[in-house]
Nucleic acid binder design. Sequence first.
DNA 1: CTCACACATGGAAGCGCTTCCATGGCAATA
DNA 2: TATTGCCATGGAAGCGCTTCCATGTGTGAG
Lengths: 325, 325
Amino acid sequence: MRGQRSATLDDVARAAGVSRATASRVITGQGPASARSRDRVTQAVTKLGYVPDAAARALASRSGTRLAIAVIGATAAILDDPYVGRVLTTAAHIAAEREVGVSLHWVPLGASLATLASSHNLGGLVVVNPTQPALHTVPKAMRGRTAAIGVGTKDVPSFDVDNGSGTDGVVRHLVNTGRQRIAMVTGPSWLPCVDRARDAYHQIMRDSGRETRVVSGDFTATRGAAAAMEIMTRWPDTDAVFALSDLTALGVLDGLHAQGIRIPADVAVAGFDDIAFACLSRPALTTSTHPVEEIAAAAARAVLDRGNTDRTTFFPSTLVVRESA
Amino acid sequence: MRGQRSATLDDVARAAGVSRATASRVITGQGPASARSRDRVTQAVTKLGYVPDAAARALASRSGTRLAIAVIGATAAILDDPYVGRVLTTAAHIAAEREVGVSLHWVPLGASLATLASSHNLGGLVVVNPTQPALHTVPKAMRGRTAAIGVGTKDVPSFDVDNGSGTDGVVRHLVNTGRQRIAMVTGPSWLPCVDRARDAYHQIMRDSGRETRVVSGDFTATRGAAAAMEIMTRWPDTDAVFALSDLTALGVLDGLHAQGIRIPADVAVAGFDDIAFACLSRPALTTSTHPVEEIAAAAARAVLDRGNTDRTTFFPSTLVVRESA
DNA sequence: CTCACACATGGAAGCGCTTCCATGGCAATA
DNA sequence: TATTGCCATGGAAGCGCTTCCATGTGTGAG
């Protein structure tokens, strides 16, 4: 293509015979410009193959054009779970409509978001699985353009699936289908949504006079398989397992299979999320939906359109009965 | 935290009692600085909670600090496949070691990479599933910091799995285990790697005096299920199906199940990629490995460390025999 | 004791862009 | 014809940072 150095706004302005200011106005579409200038600039742009420099633009306009998605406390395994992928795809979609890009950032638990969020080239920030401390590290200037997927702080709009009622639906189904000794595999304990789910489980167990059996998980399949062993060893008479993630439930299925346990005849298994694979497993997984796309879209829109929702919005989760429970 | 406006390098310099130049040198670690200046600046930085602005830095230094991953021709479904996720995670890892971020970009088939790659705040570019035209749109200035995952052009280092020998291994296994009428489900036809795999399949079929049965796929599970129907309708005596993607193979498994076909008794099924779910399905999937992490790491390193590899590197794929074939 | 040299330092010039502001031209009004 | 007002325009001032260059300051060699 063109020479070594790529064309700048100056080159365009010169080629069009207008000032840089005018060229800028035409290109950004902000501010007045005569039809004549508009034409000449447009022509110069295509002729020179001019593409505005995002960094310079962000710096000058003090508002970037990129939506950052920060995933808190993620291990490498998290992308085995379609979850982040779905958030990402959806956000990218919404962002693309507004001609902004997306970037993905893994933020270790306890790390600061300051570096990430301080950059001028950021148009917005969506924090996935936020913790209070992490959210507090986002600079004031960025607060208005931040949303959380999960349970956030007061000054940041938050979006999450209704883990409580979702869990309620699943566990109630287990109870209604005659299961007596129902175990639960949770997720990472630092996630507030895990608490809500565990609370819901405890509630039902208590109300129906059942004993609780909880082992902690991390949303991975590997952990699910291990949890299956652990559960059947500690409580051999368990007749149902509810995992707070489909991936984990799939692992549980596997672990149970390995022990020669029949599903759902001996033990019922239920998950949470309704991932694409849930209906591909044998037996197909009974689970509860997780409207990730809706949630991610809401978060992305809240950030990009500055929706002034500063409350937490919960999205309903509905039971999907298949073969495993 | 601090006031409305966040601290700039000027603030730090002032607080430390040095010039902006010196402060910059200390912070970037480039250029000389006395121990005294270093201390004072470091203190000022922590005191003010100073975080450098990425946009300004990129603009001034003419070299960004972000690794962009552009996925060509991706549909929303692509993230159901762990593939992109694995690329992303690995790249993010390598990038993080060098304190650079990653960003992900969906580039429609036929779209230009110019806008993406022209930005000064880009440290490198990794193009996934590149097409020749797409690669040609990356500005000269960026060429040196670009790598391809897939088959690229001469001036860009490329990394890919050896689809040819991988396919060879799988199909040969099918042949060796006595399968006679082996069908293949391919991937998107615009991907060169699909050609290589199809060629390998044709080769073996021809060499062993077998007839070829090819239906085209798109790497999704949905398409796999449909392909299973299509294959069994067109060629009811088929006794093996090889899909160029595990996701598709899983779909095939599902489609075959739906028709009451036993696997592997009636029909053997083999995939490609060895995704995490491959061993979770019933029956567990026979497949061939795809060292995505190695490939992505090589690509990321080639870009970040300016490795002058301007050739295509193929990574070996090895057969994994499980239950389905 | 002098000269040369290295090193730490600050001033200043940008990087490529947006945007404020003052200017000038033109049509509409009186 | 003189006055008002509006709109298109260019000049210039940054955005926050890096980096070149010239200036001091202290050290070792002669």
